[in-house]
Protein backbone atom coordinates (compact mmCIF):
# COMPACT_ATOMS: atom_id res chain seq x y z
CA UNK A 1 0.00 0.00 0.00
CA UNK A 2 1.41 3.40 -0.98
CA UNK A 3 2.03 5.69 1.96
CA UNK A 4 1.16 9.37 1.92
CA UNK A 5 4.31 11.47 1.42
CA UNK A 6 5.22 14.07 4.03
CA UNK A 7 4.73 17.11 1.82
CA UNK A 8 6.34 19.49 4.27
CA UNK A 9 9.65 17.67 3.74
CA UNK A 10 9.59 17.77 -0.04
CA UNK A 11 11.48 20.39 -2.07
CA UNK A 12 9.57 22.85 -4.24
CA UNK A 13 10.47 21.12 -7.50
CA UNK A 14 9.20 17.78 -6.16
CA UNK A 15 5.96 19.42 -5.09
CA UNK A 16 5.64 21.08 -8.50
CA UNK A 17 6.09 17.73 -10.27
CA UNK A 18 3.46 16.12 -8.05
CA UNK A 19 1.10 19.07 -8.62
CA UNK A 20 1.58 18.81 -12.37
CA UNK A 21 0.26 15.25 -12.07
CA UNK A 22 -2.84 16.61 -10.33
CA UNK A 23 -1.82 16.19 -6.70
CA UNK A 24 -3.81 18.92 -4.99
CA UNK A 25 -2.20 18.34 -1.59
CA UNK A 26 1.23 19.00 -3.04
CA UNK A 27 -0.09 22.24 -4.50
CA UNK A 28 -1.59 23.19 -1.14
CA UNK A 29 1.86 22.82 0.42
CA UNK A 30 3.31 25.15 -2.23
CA UNK A 31 0.58 27.68 -1.44
CA UNK A 32 1.34 27.46 2.27
CA UNK A 33 5.05 28.00 1.65
CA UNK A 34 4.83 30.97 -0.65
CA UNK A 35 1.49 32.65 0.06
CA UNK A 36 3.07 35.35 2.23
CA UNK A 37 5.49 36.43 -0.48
CA UNK A 38 2.78 36.59 -3.13
CA UNK A 39 0.41 38.45 -0.86
CA UNK A 40 3.16 40.91 0.09
CA UNK A 41 3.92 41.60 -3.58
CA UNK A 42 0.23 42.12 -4.37
CA UNK A 43 -0.14 44.38 -1.34
CA UNK A 44 2.91 46.44 -2.25
CA UNK A 45 1.36 47.14 -5.63
CA UNK A 46 -2.32 47.48 -4.74
CA UNK A 47 -2.03 49.09 -1.27
CA UNK A 48 -5.28 47.42 -0.25
CA UNK A 49 -5.55 44.26 1.86
CA UNK A 50 -8.73 42.90 0.28
CA UNK A 51 -7.52 43.41 -3.26
CA UNK A 52 -4.14 41.92 -2.38
CA UNK A 53 -5.78 38.81 -0.89
CA UNK A 54 -8.12 38.45 -3.84
CA UNK A 55 -5.42 38.91 -6.48
CA UNK A 56 -2.92 36.64 -4.76
CA UNK A 57 -5.59 33.92 -4.59
CA UNK A 58 -6.42 34.50 -8.23
CA UNK A 59 -2.73 34.07 -9.01
CA UNK A 60 -2.73 30.67 -7.29
CA UNK A 61 -5.77 29.60 -9.30
CA UNK A 62 -4.03 30.65 -12.54
CA UNK A 63 -0.86 28.94 -11.35
CA UNK A 64 -2.72 25.67 -10.88
CA UNK A 65 -4.37 25.96 -14.29
CA UNK A 66 -1.08 26.75 -16.07
CA UNK A 67 1.13 24.41 -14.10
CA UNK A 68 1.78 22.22 -17.13
CA UNK A 69 3.39 25.23 -18.82
CA UNK A 70 5.92 25.64 -16.02
CA UNK A 71 9.22 24.34 -17.38
CA UNK A 72 11.46 25.25 -14.47
CA UNK A 73 13.37 28.02 -16.30
CA UNK A 74 13.02 30.10 -13.15
CA UNK A 75 12.14 29.06 -9.61
CA UNK A 76 8.51 28.23 -8.95
CA UNK A 77 8.08 31.20 -6.63
CA UNK A 78 9.54 33.58 -9.24
CA UNK A 79 7.12 32.17 -11.82
CA UNK A 80 4.20 32.62 -9.42
CA UNK A 81 5.33 36.14 -8.54
CA UNK A 82 5.28 37.07 -12.22
CA UNK A 83 1.69 35.83 -12.50
CA UNK A 84 0.75 37.91 -9.45
CA UNK A 85 2.44 41.01 -10.86
CA UNK A 86 0.64 40.64 -14.18
CA UNK A 87 -2.72 40.31 -12.45
CA UNK A 88 -1.98 43.38 -10.33
CA UNK A 89 -0.92 45.37 -13.40
CA UNK A 90 -4.15 44.40 -15.20
CA UNK A 91 -6.17 45.48 -12.19
CA UNK A 92 -4.27 48.77 -11.86
CA UNK A 93 -4.85 49.49 -15.56
CA UNK A 94 -8.58 48.93 -15.09
CA UNK A 95 -8.60 51.26 -12.10
CA UNK A 96 -6.59 53.88 -13.96
CA UNK A 97 -9.16 53.99 -16.73
CA UNK A 98 -11.77 54.72 -14.08
CA UNK A 99 -10.03 57.64 -12.42
CA UNK A 100 -8.34 60.88 -13.34
CA UNK A 101 -4.59 61.11 -13.65
CA UNK A 102 -2.76 61.87 -10.42
CA UNK A 103 -0.89 65.11 -9.87
CA UNK A 104 2.37 63.21 -9.85
CA UNK A 105 1.70 61.80 -13.28
CA UNK A 106 0.91 65.26 -14.59
CA UNK A 107 4.18 66.55 -13.14
CA UNK A 108 6.00 63.79 -14.90
CA UNK A 109 4.42 64.65 -18.23
CA UNK A 110 5.22 68.35 -17.89
CA UNK A 111 8.91 67.87 -17.19
CA UNK A 112 8.68 66.75 -13.58
CA UNK A 113 9.28 68.37 -10.23
CA UNK A 114 12.07 65.89 -9.54
CA UNK A 115 14.48 68.06 -11.52
CA UNK A 116 14.04 70.88 -9.01
CA UNK A 117 14.32 68.73 -5.90
CA UNK A 118 17.51 69.40 -3.97
CA UNK A 119 19.78 66.41 -3.53
CA UNK A 120 19.39 65.06 0.00
CA UNK A 121 21.43 62.85 2.22
CA UNK A 122 19.10 60.13 3.39
CA UNK A 123 20.16 58.24 6.39
CA UNK A 124 16.91 57.13 7.96
CA UNK A 125 18.40 53.86 9.10
CA UNK A 126 20.49 55.60 11.74
CA UNK A 127 19.42 54.32 15.15
CA UNK A 128 16.31 52.66 13.78
CA UNK A 129 15.02 49.12 14.19
CA UNK A 130 14.73 47.36 10.84
CA UNK A 131 11.00 46.89 11.27
CA UNK A 132 10.55 50.63 11.87
CA UNK A 133 12.62 51.44 8.81
CA UNK A 134 10.47 49.12 6.71
CA UNK A 135 7.35 50.84 7.99
CA UNK A 136 8.77 54.21 6.96
CA UNK A 137 9.60 52.95 3.52
CA UNK A 138 6.10 51.55 3.26
CA UNK A 139 4.58 54.90 4.25
CA UNK A 140 6.75 56.67 1.70
CA UNK A 141 5.76 54.18 -1.01
CA UNK A 142 2.16 54.94 -0.17
CA UNK A 143 2.69 58.54 -1.23
CA UNK A 144 3.83 57.71 -4.75
CA UNK A 145 1.46 57.40 -7.68
CA UNK A 146 0.87 53.83 -8.75
CA UNK A 147 2.97 54.27 -11.91
CA UNK A 148 6.02 55.38 -9.94
CA UNK A 149 5.52 52.88 -7.15
CA UNK A 150 5.15 50.00 -9.61
CA UNK A 151 8.34 50.87 -11.47
CA UNK A 152 10.21 51.12 -8.18
CA UNK A 153 8.86 47.77 -6.94
CA UNK A 154 9.64 45.98 -10.18
CA UNK A 155 13.13 47.42 -10.34
CA UNK A 156 14.26 47.36 -6.70
CA UNK A 157 12.37 44.40 -5.29
CA UNK A 158 11.91 42.19 -8.34
CA UNK A 159 15.20 43.36 -9.87
CA UNK A 160 13.81 43.50 -13.38
CA UNK A 161 15.67 45.34 -16.14
CA UNK A 162 14.30 48.50 -17.76
CA UNK A 163 13.35 46.56 -20.89
CA UNK A 164 11.40 43.95 -18.96
CA UNK A 165 9.55 46.58 -16.91
CA UNK A 166 8.68 48.53 -20.07
CA UNK A 167 7.24 45.36 -21.62
CA UNK A 168 5.12 44.57 -18.58
CA UNK A 169 3.91 48.13 -18.12
CA UNK A 170 3.32 48.59 -21.85
CA UNK A 171 5.36 51.77 -22.21
CA UNK A 172 8.74 52.90 -23.54
CA UNK A 173 12.09 52.38 -21.84
CA UNK A 174 12.47 56.18 -21.70
CA UNK A 175 9.24 56.45 -19.69
CA UNK A 176 10.44 53.74 -17.31
CA UNK A 177 13.77 55.52 -16.79
CA UNK A 178 12.01 58.79 -16.15
CA UNK A 179 9.51 57.23 -13.72
CA UNK A 180 12.23 55.37 -11.86
CA UNK A 181 14.27 58.55 -11.55
CA UNK A 182 11.32 60.48 -10.19
CA UNK A 183 10.32 57.67 -7.83
CA UNK A 184 13.81 57.36 -6.37
CA UNK A 185 14.19 61.10 -5.89
CA UNK A 186 10.76 61.39 -4.33
CA UNK A 187 11.50 58.47 -1.99
CA UNK A 188 14.80 60.08 -0.97
CA UNK A 189 13.02 63.33 -0.24
CA UNK A 190 10.22 61.63 1.72
CA UNK A 191 12.59 59.52 3.78
CA UNK A 192 14.82 62.51 4.53
CA UNK A 193 11.84 64.59 5.64
CA UNK A 194 10.67 61.80 7.93
CA UNK A 195 14.12 61.86 9.54
CA UNK A 196 14.01 65.64 9.91
CA UNK A 197 10.58 65.52 11.56
CA UNK A 198 11.86 62.99 14.04
CA UNK A 199 14.82 65.15 14.98
CA UNK A 200 12.65 68.22 15.64
Amino acid sequence: MATQPDYSKLADDELVKASQKGDMQAFEELVARHRDKLYARAYSMMRNENEATDLSQEAWVKGWQRLVQFQGDSSFVTWMTRITINLCLDQLRKQKRQRAESIEAMDEESGGVERQMPVVNINPSEGLERSELRKRIDRALDQLSYEHRTVLILHEFEELEYKEIAKRMECSIGTIMSRLFYARRKMASLLASLRKEELK
Partner: peptide, 26 residues
Protein backbone atom coordinates in the same frame (compact mmCIF):
# COMPACT_ATOMS: atom_id res chain seq x y z
CA UNK B 1 21.52 59.92 -3.41
CA UNK B 2 20.31 57.48 -6.06
CA UNK B 3 22.65 54.80 -4.75
CA UNK B 4 21.55 55.30 -1.13
CA UNK B 5 17.88 55.09 -2.10
CA UNK B 6 18.37 51.98 -4.19
CA UNK B 7 20.36 50.17 -1.50
CA UNK B 8 18.01 51.20 1.27
CA UNK B 9 15.00 49.85 -0.61
CA UNK B 10 16.67 46.62 -1.68
CA UNK B 11 17.76 45.84 1.85
CA UNK B 12 14.52 46.80 3.55
CA UNK B 13 11.57 45.68 1.51
CA UNK B 14 8.41 46.33 3.57
CA UNK B 15 6.69 43.23 4.91
CA UNK B 16 2.95 42.65 4.67
CA UNK B 17 1.88 39.68 6.77
CA UNK B 18 -1.16 37.75 5.61
CA UNK B 19 -3.64 37.53 8.45
CA UNK B 20 -5.85 34.73 7.05
CA UNK B 21 -5.15 31.26 8.42
CA UNK B 22 -3.57 28.67 6.13
CA UNK B 23 -6.78 26.61 5.98
CA UNK B 24 -9.05 29.55 5.30
CA UNK B 25 -6.80 30.99 2.60
CA UNK B 26 -6.45 27.61 0.91
Amino acid sequence: ELTQTRDLLRQNEPQAPLTDSRDFYW
